[in-house]
Design a protein around this nucleic acid. Structure first.
Lengths: 207, 207
DNA sequence: GCAATGATTTGAACACTGTCAAGATAGAGG
DNA sequence: CCTCTATCTTGACAGTGTTCAAATCATTGC
């Protein structure tokens, strides 16, 4: 009816069909098992069809990555909310949300940080990526009691991002045990790690 | 003469020729620009030839990654030596060595951590990877005044690795400016980051 | 010195991949 | 009803990694 959600041409809504087909492939076979033709196959469409909607493989994968980042931001916010009112607890909550997202959607997570498969120039991708970084920097600024535009905050945010990203990587490599042990690792080891490396507000910030 | 180093069969030493051809491709075009056929082409050999020496693409890339890790370990040791006798300075020196390697050999660095292109089961790869991790844990243990087998050390090492890895990633993404600014960033921003996030030996280690 | 041996490389095939141009199709708007 | 435009198919092309029988050639044994 409304032309935005169901513009029933030949297929109906091939754009979304391809995106969700890709998502399913990422879940079942990972990024390596993905191919544009396979996505087209699953959408019940010929190999050349995706080009009209996404231009090239990069376009399709970029679209999937964008939706991944949107969901990541949601996970960050949910995790932060668990932290209550203490700024440090809220920051750590974001970290837990980050790792939880990585563990929940390994395929999407893989894709999102493999820039060789994405279109870096895509405006929406950059926007949603900046949005995620903004979430982190806001929580970090509150935690350090500094302005969000401070280079100190940017540097501390980089460090915090690296920490949880490395932890997530480790979890996905299976180095933290199976899925059962992973959940407890996120709730036990990650807090320990975050406590061990916390941004130190006492150091001289302007050298 | 000695059959080990120069067993002049048809090509002479195709194994090494393919490895160095791959290395050159990584420098010139990055990992995306690599293909097994292109490497064979540069070695002046047919497309099927590499199979005999490496089994598959994974074998060749894994060999290149192994040599990369060997060089990384050398960079870690060199950086650590710059730290003099202070354990923390030595640890931070290792971090500088890590980032320097990543910046000096971006292609190899990319490859080394793209496990979808490597043969995880390769024994030598795991050995040299473990060797690199051991360097870090040794320096970290000295820094924390704990035994190297302590889980606390392992966790702290993971955190430190994540920090410098994230920093290196950022540098390679060009977010730290051009090559000129990069060198100074390694010598200025990285120490700040490492100082901000340093393993805290005062926390309760056994929860 | 020469033939046999076995490692090394070739060449052609196969099943894939992503992209492209040209034609078929079907719904929308006049 | 008829055109028009976006959508999709078809068929081709260049390129990829892998496989395998056949050809090549250094080495080994005689």
């Amino acid at each position: 009816m409304d032309p935005a959600s169901k513009s029933g041409y030949h297929h109906g809504d091939l754009r979304d069909a391809l995106v969700s087909a890709t998502d399913r492939i990422l879940v079942e076979r990972g990024l390596d098992g993905f191919s544009l033709r396979e996505a087209a196959r699953r959408a019940g469409v010929s190999a050349g069809a995706p080009a009209h909607h996404f231009g090239s493989v990069y376009g399709l994968l970029t679209e999937v990555a964008i939706r991944g980042f949107e969901e990541l931001v949601a996970f960050l916010k949910a995790g932060e909310a668990e932290g209550g009112s203490d700024p440090l607890a809220r920051l750590h909550g974001q970290g837990r949300g980050y790792v939880r997202f990585a563990v929940a959607f390994p395929g999407r997570f893989d894709l999102m940080f493999r820039k060789d498969r994405l279109d870096d120039a895509n405006e929406r991708l950059r926007l949603v990526g900046a949005s995620a970084r903004h979430e982190l920097e806001r929580a970090m600024a509150a935690c350090l009691g500094r302005d969000i535009s401070s280079p100190h905050v940017a540097l501390a945010a980089l460090g915090a991002w690296s920490l949880v990203h490395g932890f997530a990587h480790l979890a996905l490599d299976g180095k933290l045990g199976g899925p059962a042990a992973m959940a407890s690792a996120i709730d036990e080891m990650l807090p320990q790690l975050l406590a061990m490396y916390r941004p130190d507000r006492e150091q001289s910030g302007d050298a």
